[in-house]
């Protein structure tokens, strides 16, 4: 004996299809929102961690920096003396004046633009082994151009070590939406007077729907700012 099984009615099928499409639509929407939220979350996490890293490194440099020798929006030069503070305090030319390239006393920080137009924050330090013994020291100068030409000379001679502090950067977005290149900030452009250093930049990532950005501004005071005797004579 066969038993015939009643199929779905047209109304049931239509209702089921309708409900299925509504549910599918909302689930797809949620998944999309989920994906976008995770992308934003990732960028923020990365910005927090990388921003804290840059802030920490700049803070450490500010702690050790005696003076900022050269200041421009995309490149600054820090002088981190290697002699002890008690020796520095004598004001003796031989100890205080001399900047020893072999002792990691000069640190250039530079924002460089890459081919994809994003910016990278670079730290340049001298490679001690490559500097000829006759050129291992230099004397203090408050002339920024002197330091710029030394930088070019050392960089072109491949005597500088390049370390990347942060990449994928852009400039900060100001109120109104206009963006500018990333830049260093300081209290005053005078080498003899400046007692702070900082930077303004933004971390940028693209999640496929458009760029996501997180601006950051870090600034630190030079903890042991110590003016060179020449500054008092100027």
């Amino acid at each position: 004996m066969t038993r015939t099984r009643r199929g779905f009615t047209l109304i049931e099928v239509i209702v089921a299809t309708l409900v299925t499409s509504v549910v599918a639509g909302s689930v797809v929407g949620m998944v999309e929102a989920f994906r976008a939220a995770v992308a934003v979350q990732d960028l923020r996490s990365e910005a927090i961690v990388r921003g804290a890293g840059v802030q920490s490194h700049l803070g450490l440099l500010a702690l050790k920096t005696r003076m900022t020798l050269s200041l421009s929006p995309q490149r600054i030069l820090l002088w981190l003396p290697s002699e002890t503070l008690s020796t520095s305090g004598t004001g003796s030319d031989t100890e205080f004046d001399l900047i020893n390239l072999l002792n990691d006393e000069l640190h250039w920080l530079e924002f460089l633009q890459d081919q994809d137009l994003s910016w990278t924050l670079i730290e340049w330090t001298v490679k001690p082994g490559l500097v000829p013994s006759g050129a291992s020291t230099t004397y203090f100068s408050s002339d920024g151009e002197f330091w710029d030409s030394l930088f070019v000379q050392l960089r072109d001679s491949e005597m500088l070590r390049r370390s990347t502090l942060a990449s994928g950067l852009d400039g900060p977005q100001l109120a109104g939406g206009s963006a500018s290149p990333p830049k260093f900030v300081w209290q005053t452009a005078s080498t003899c007077e400046n007692r702070s250093l900082g930077a303004e930049f933004a971390f940028v990532a693209d999640d496929g729907t458009g760029p996501l950005r997180s601006d950051l501004r870090v600034e630190s005071a030079l903890a042991f700012f110590d003016r060179h005797p020449i500054c008092s004579e100027e």
């Binding site: 900060p172 977005q173 100001l174 109120a175 939406g177 303004e200 933004a202 997180s214 601006d215 950051l216 501004r217």
Partner: peptide, 8 residues
């Protein structure tokens, strides 16, 4: 100067 948009 003004802080960037993130600080608004």
């Amino acid at each position: 100067g003004a802080f960037s948009e993130s600080y608004s």
